[in-house]
Structure formats: C-alpha cells, structure tokens
C-alpha cells in the first residue's frame, strides 16, 4: 500500500496534466495553476527535510568516523553560524554580520575552489588534447581556434572571431540541438514510464 498510493497519485496527476496542456480554457488554466501551487508547497516542504538529512548525516559522520570529526564539526559550526546570523529579515541588508560572512568568507571560499578548475583544465588539456586520430585532431583544432579568440592576434583577430562565431553558432548549435531533441524524446519516454508505474526508482527502496 505504501508504494501503491504514490503510484496512483502519479498516474492520475500525469494523465490530468497531459490532457490539461491541450485544453485552452479557464477551467484548465485553473487546474494548472492549482497544480503549480502544490508543486511550490511540496518544494518548500522539502527544504526542512533536506536540512534534517544534512544534519543527521553530518552528525553521524562526526560520531562514527573520528578522522572526519573535525571536518564534520566545521561543517556543522558553519551551518549554525550562518543560520543564526541570518534569522532576522534585517540580516539580509548590506553591512549585517550575515552579509559580511557571506561576502568575506563564503564568496572567497567558493570562488577559490571554482578557480582551481583553471589549473586542472590546463593539466588535462596538456595530456588529453593529442592528435591521435582524425576525430581527435578535429577536436584539437576546434579547441585551439576557440581558445585563440581570447588572445590578441593583431590583424587576424577579426578572422578568428568570425570563425569562432561560426563554430559556436553552426556546428556547436547543430550538436546541441540534436542533443536537446534527444534528451527531450528521452524525457518523454521516461515520463510515460513513470506515469504508467513502470519506472519506480524515484520511490526509493522499500
């Protein structure tokens, strides 16, 4: 029964909202908006669940794994500080402790982590961009041209820019469109399987 009820809800909602999409009327619009409100409510209710899940997992890590206790402690401490300093509406105004922590701790930390990507990309490019085959040579050539747009090349800069523009808006776009259409068709197939109860992994394990 625990699995049957969600499956029936998904079946009914799935069929109703597929039909609703093709009926242009006020009643149909009302059903859609009502459904959207429910999506918002469910989304918001998922937030405390996420917080509980994070706290529980981090706490258990701290208790069971002595080597990771310090990091779990830092994580919980950071969570508590940001939550406590951000409780009031005024804390979101510039100059508050919460905003100072956000600007001078969180932004530099995350931006630094993200910037490390440059070093790894350089190292990976050195090892991976090799003209081993025709396809690899094409990839190498394309990457080379796209990278060169950032380098001042004097009189050939305009030509390179035009070439990069063409690469991005013709072959890149064609490939991306193909991918998007493929993903769209795949999503439709998966949705049908979910609505009919064939695909049940979203329910988790029993």
């Amino acid at each position: 029964m625990r699995r049957q009820i969600p499956l029936y809800i998904v079946l009914v909602c799935g069929i109703v909202f597929v039909i609703q999409f093709f009926i242009p009327s006020h009643e149909s619009e009302f059903i859609f908006e009502y459904g959207q409100d429910w999506v918002m409510v469910i989304g918001i209710l998922a937030l405390p669940l996420g917080i509980w899940s994070y706290l529980r997992k981090t706490w258990l890590t701290a208790v069971k794994k002595p080597k990771e206790r310090f990091f779990a402690g830092v994580s919980l401490f950071g969570f508590a500080i940001m939550m406590l300093t951000g409780l009031k509406r005024e804390s979101l105004m510039a100059g508050s402790l919460y905003m100072e922590l956000f600007e001078y701790v969180l932004i530099p930390i995350q931006a630094t982590i993200f910037s490390l990507l440059a070093f790894y990309i350089a190292s990976a490019a050195y090892r991976a961009f090799r003209a081993r085959s025709v396809i690899a040579t094409m990839l190498l050539g394309t990457a080379f041209i796209v990278m060169l747009r950032l380098i001042p090349l004097g009189p050939i800069s305009d030509v390179n820019q035009a070439l990069v523009g063409w690469i991005l808006s013709v072959p890149n776009m064609a490939a991306k469109r193909g991918l998007l259409i493929g993903i769209g068709l795949g999503a439709i197939a998966t949705c049908i399987k979910i609505i009919l109860g064939i695909e049940r992994t979203y329910l988790g394990r029993d």
Binding site: I121, A122, A125, Y126, R127, F129, R130, A131, L140, A143, F144, M147, L148, I151
Partner: peptide
Amino acid sequence: VIVFFIVIGN
C-alpha cells in the same frame, strides 16, 4: 600558456 602546453604536448 595553455595553448603553448598543448603545442608542446603534441
């Protein structure tokens, strides 16, 4: 620098 390394690598 990245372009230089790619050329050297090849």
